[in-house]
Design a protein around this nucleic acid. Structure first.
Lengths: 336, 336
DNA sequence: TTGAAAAATACAAACGTGTGCAAAGATAAT
DNA sequence: ATTATCTTTGCACACGTTTGTATTTTTCAA
């Protein structure tokens, strides 16, 4: 293990000043072509690697973008991460992914790390736990570009990419009503998050519009999982009035519902209709195929990245409130 | 947007030298308790954030760990990322995740970025594309701790966490034989990767041991996907001799196989047996439930992290070859 | 009250890079 | 040959921290 070579080392060997080496490496026109080539050749041969800490300390460029998501092993986020990574790569940026684990405390610490390491920008979908947005305000205060997607902080002025959750859930609910279902339940997440609040509002508003009495917003405060889906469904099913349809905010929970429903011998779509947000890799194989709501992950990623890049390039001011909405879509199958 | 505060700023205001501030912030016993408290209070109030670039340039600590995976949106890797992130968080480290996209070129650039930013250590599962290991050798040369998991570089001496691919595939093949299947095909990835090569060897060796004639290692060079699964299966099915069982290295490919099989009216397990590596979130719902090989993601993550941490703490030397093997397990269901 | 020891603080240098400015060297025009 | 212009290189400082050493201040004992 040898000590890493620096521009000063190169300068010493080639008998030039290190500033010349610096310029040569960065293709500054102010350096002679011949010396530039000599420097580049030497640098390549000795595997010179820029020390980005020095560069960033100096206050020059930085191409590192941070991405904070609640869960990496959730296909919605995994798809967005994957797409963002590709977009960034093509534009010369590098994405570092951080997982908040749905925890406010972890999210806060991640934000601190991001500030301390001087990232060029941040793309965030907040944790369920996040009740306070001071850490994001801090990010703004330090002049770090910030873009929210999907789960956003309402009280922070910055670009945001949102899904038409209210509308799509209203549409899904109305679809179920028109199919003849009358006891429609809604399984969703904590209403402190815009996503789940909007879905719930869309659901409730339609039921009220149709004068339906059976309104069951089931708020799952725990992390979405197959297990919790089983438990919650089982609990609901033992009520006096059972639902005849469910809209579920999570594929994990929906899977739990399906398994539990099978245990009880409940037939889908006859005894129970089901619409779920997000699709399963194997959704086509399941009988009956489940009607689901597809969110445009690729589009979300593309817009979020575009907005962030514009902020980094100062084409969008920090603190500017821009809201972009993308359209989710109901993919009609056989579960209702 | 205000300029960020530094220790020198604090020092100036409190009429002390900045070195005193530095020590106060780090709880150095050499600073008076009263001044320490004053400094800490002022720092907290004015939201002081350490500039890690300066710290790292100075050559002091660094708690950033890099993780390179081929694909984030693949449940095997997503689970490992998720787990590693938690382990790291509990030990005071921060994980940055990078996606190589199965591309050698991207992987190389990621490694350069890691070197340039002075990460404390790297955990890697290599891209299918990776034929050359020079970039990892470079990492070692720069003294950066490196641990491989699952897909490893055979010619780099460093800690590695591997799965018993040979053995488990041999077992799966033998199981199929004993179940009465005689034309067993094997769908796997490029054999330049240890994982797929070992699986193939396990498969071939058992068939030869039993003197089976029908040996069909189908090497999929493309990225695993439902679509490619359909195509490859369809192609194979139109051969004169059809397989009566398949071992598949990817759930995505298996899904394609199942869909295509259904299209042809093939019955599982009667007409076709199937064992797949990795499980689907919804695997319990599918009829028939698919027998699959479960890999201990949590254990892999735990061992990899432990090894890396020991390297960072110099308890393990850089360049030391340590191979840990974890056991995959066949989860018997109804598909064969 | 003095001196020595201990505690607290200040000083200075270093990490590797980038950049404005000055200086030197080369080229061209008169 | 002399001056003006352009090209190329060198110099020095700055970015924010940490740390060994020197210096000042405080404490305490004789």
């Amino acid at each position: 293990m040898k000590k890493r070579i620096t521009i000063k080392d190169i300068a010493k060997v080639l008998n030039v000043h290190h500033s010349t080496v610096s310029r040569a490496l960065r293709n500054d026109p102010r350096v002679n072509a011949k010396t530039r080539d000599t420097v580049l050749a030497y640098a390549r041969e000795h595997e010179y690697q820029t020390n980005m800490n020095a560069v960033q300390l100096r206050g020059t460029s930085n191409n590192a973008i941070a991405l904070i998501v609640p869960n990496i092993n959730h296909s919605f986020f995994a798809d967005i991460i994957s797409q963002l990574t590709n977009l960034a790569y093509n534009k010369g940026y590098v994405i570092s992914v951080f997982q908040s684990n749905e925890k406010y405390q972890q999210e806060k610490e991640i934000v601190n790390t991001i500030i301390q390491h001087n990232f060029a920008g941040v793309i965030v979908s907040i944790a369920k736990d996040t009740i306070n947005s001071d850490h994001f305000a801090l990010l703004k205060k330090f002049g770090i570009p910030l873009v929210f997607f999907d789960r956003v902080c309402e009280d922070i002025f910055t670009p945001k990419v949102k899904v038409n959750n209210y509308e799509i859930t209203a549409n899904a609910t109305e679809y179920l009503i028109k199919k003849g279902y009358s006891n429609i339940a809604h399984f969703t997440g904590t209403t402190s998050i815009n996503v789940f609040r909007e879905r719930q509002n869309g659901y409730v508003d339609i039921l009220q519009k149709y004068g339906m009495e059976y309104v069951q917003p089931i708020v799952i405060e725990e992390d979405f999982s197959v297990e919790i889906g089983k438990i919650i469904f089982s609990r609901l099913w033992n009520f006096s009035v059972k639902p005849d349809a469910i809209i579920s905010s999570s594929v994990h929970v929906s899977t739990g519902i399906l398994l539990e429903a099978r245990k009880y011998g409940i037939k889908i779509p006859e005894d129970l209709g089901l619409i779920t947000f997000g699709s399963l890799l194997s959704s086509e194989i399941i009988e009956p195929q489940i009607t689901y709501i597809e969110q445009p992950e690729l589009e979300i990623a593309a817009i979020a990245f575009d907005l962030l890049e514009k902020m980094i390039k100062k084409e969008i001011q920090i603190g500017e409130l821009i809201e972009r909405q993308v359209q989710a879509e109901i993919i009609f199958k056989k579960s209702c």
